[in-house]
Design a protein around this nucleic acid. Structure first.
Lengths: 146, 146
DNA sequence: CTCTCAAATAAGAATAATTCTAACTTGCAC
DNA sequence: GTGCAAGTTAGAATTATTCTTATTTGAGAG
């Protein structure tokens, strides 16, 4: 019952405290992209002795160790997820706040191509699509797909 | 001489105060993507009687009126630019902080395509390339696409 | 198992960008 | 010129996050 994050902490030489185990558990079990506040709620539900500072520090440490990844979707706070092998981009549902992940090879090629035209190498990028669900029952939209 | 922003303020039914004229002038003359702080410096150089609150409120009002556009490049503060007819994306020079604008039709097509696969319509998007200059060859610097 | 101590934690203060408050101006329609 | 809604000012408030300081703890060594 040792989760992925606990093993990675060990590998990174991080102490495994009770708080970290709890945070690791919550992060591992999250299927969404929770904010620090949301994570704090879930953590204190398991163990109320966790302080917000500890959560924030742990999140920072875990991100520095590349174990988790934080995102800023322009909501005024960060959202977190366990780092995946493949980097990916996000589609944010403007109605529900749900986040979908995607990775399109054309996009990767395109960004390198564009950067090269300016004389740059892309170090990292941010691609976020803010979108609303297509209502299938509704008549076809007038705007034709491009 | 009446600049673009002043006319647009008039059209939007906004009062043209001395402070707004100064802010409009500074924004119009900026060729970079200045932060609120940087804008404040430039404004107070022209007229020291402008307060930071006024600047922030004016920036908000101007953005709501679609006269300017703010961006969050993950630096902890916003950057502003006069709204252009065509929306565009940004390449941020990680060394100098310079911002280059681009617009690639393939990217527009691709984002719609990806969203449609998830059953969504893209309302807006954010594409930012964080990059470093290619050192070896001077290649294609200063190439501007609109 | 105990000792040790660097690393981690708790609680709350500090920070920084931005927004709000409340009392005072001012642009501009009449 | 007047009236008043919109704008301004200075500073307080807000909010996510980081820092400080005293205290606790994980885990390696003995």
């Amino acid at each position: 019952m040792q989760n992925q994050i606990e093993q990675k902490c060990r590998d990174a030489g991080l102490k495994l405290t009770g708080q970290r185990r709890t945070i690791a558990k919550v992060l591992t079990e999250a299927t969404d992209h929770p904010s620090a506040n949301e994570l704090f709620k879930r953590c204190t539900e398991i163990d109320p002795r966790i302080s917000l500072s500890t959560l924030y520090r742990t999140l920072r440490v875990l991100e520095e160790a590349r174990i988790i990844q934080s995102h800023d979707f322009g909501e005024g706070y960060a959202r977190f997820e366990v780092a995946k092998e493949k980097p990916h981009d996000h589609l944010i549902d403007l109605v529900s706040g749900d986040v979908h992940e995607f990775n399109h090879p054309d996009l990767e090629r395109l960004k390198q191509f564009i950067a090269k035209e300016f004389g740059y190498d892309v170090v990292r990028h941010r691609v976020e699509l803010y979108a609303i669900p297509i209502k299938s029952s509704q008549s076809k939209r007038r705007r034709v797909r491009s």
